[in-house]
Write a protein that binds this DNA or RNA. Structure first.
Length: 270
DNA sequence: CTAAGGACCTGTCGGC
DNA sequence: TGCCGACAGGTCCTTA
């Protein structure tokens, strides 16, 4: 479910309900997520006010004067704002209740998500080595080209590497490569500087468009039960194996790279 | 250092 | 209907 656009959409959706709100209770029903939820959360969070809600890569950062709660949605996590006391269903692992009478509920069937606590977010090991945010100015074609020196890995796996650039998930990696006309299989070091400039531009474009489309998701976000696939109508190659390419009409190809599915047009992408 | 593969976990879908 | 394998929007860790 969560690519960067959806994480950003989630952040915007929940922000009004958590910022400047005081936590009155934390309920943990299942602490075995990607990592066990530390006891420091239940110990530190109640009584604290959420001073800010930021996003770094796909982590949501809930800032308090005592420390920061880091939340990652993993592969199947979702957040909802509900009235406090709403009965919990399957995979509703954590509730954070506020003095407003609302609560933030974290649901995650596959439990690849995580909920962590840190007093030093600037040096946290999971954040320290991350590459730039794709929508920031520091991320551009020159940067990509420079980082690709000596990299034999495929361009698709290269742009999905969070140490190079964060937030490019499996769907938008395929989508961006299609828009750039670049084959997902070519080695990163063999992509010219000019083409890397196109690469960076389309990554920004596709993520920005998806965040924009997230407005629709945002609306449903609070009252739906997390149906996936809001961006489906905009996808040009992802999930379209054998279907006709929108540009040339040739069938879309599916292959596997790094154990993840890749979709591309052999005719349009070289 | 890079690259490749396994690991974590549940749910759904198609085929037999 | 039941069973089984393949697959799913992430990413860290181990090994070579």
């Amino acid at each position: 479910m969560p690519e960067l656009p959806e994480v950003e959409t989630s952040r915007r959706g929940i922000a009004p309900y958590v910022i400047d709100k005081k936590v009155v209770a934390v309920t943990v029903r299942q602490r075995q997520l990607r990592w066990p939820i530390p006891t420091t959360i239940k110990r530190n969070l109640p009584g604290m006010t959420i001073d800010g809600l930021a996003r770094r890569a796909k982590y949501l950062l809930f800032r308090t004067s005592r420390g920061t709660m880091m939340l990652h949605l993993g592969m199947s996590g979702s957040l909802r704002i509900l009235a406090a006391g709403t009965p919990a269903g399957k995979h509703d692992h954590v509730d954070i209740e506020f003095d407003s009478g609302k609560m933030l509920r974290f649901n995650d069937p596959r439990r690849f998500g995580s909920l962590l606590w840190t007093t030093d977010v600037d040096h946290h090991r999971l954040l320290a080595t991350l590459g730039p945010e794709p929508l920031n100015d520091e991320f551009d074609g020159d940067y990509l080209w420079q980082r690709a020196r000596g990299r034999k890995v495929s361009i698709k796996q290269f742009i999905m590497n969070a140490n190079i650039v964060v937030g490019v998930g499996n769907i938008y990696a395929s989508e961006a490569l299609f828009r750039a006309g670049i084959s997902p299989k070519i080695s990163a070091q063999r992509v010219s500087k000019r083409r890397m400039q196109v690469m960076a531009a389309v990554i920004k474009e596709v993520l920005a468009e998806a965040i924009e489309a997230g407005g629709t998701t945002l609306k449903d976000f609070l009252n739906s039960d997390g149906e996936p696939g809001y961006f489906k109508q905009d996808l040009r190659v992802y999930g379209r194996e054998h279907a006709a390419c929108f540009d040339c009409g040739e069938p879309i190809t599916r292959c596997v790279q790094g154990q993840r599915a890749t979709y591309y047009c052999k005719h349009c992408q070289k």
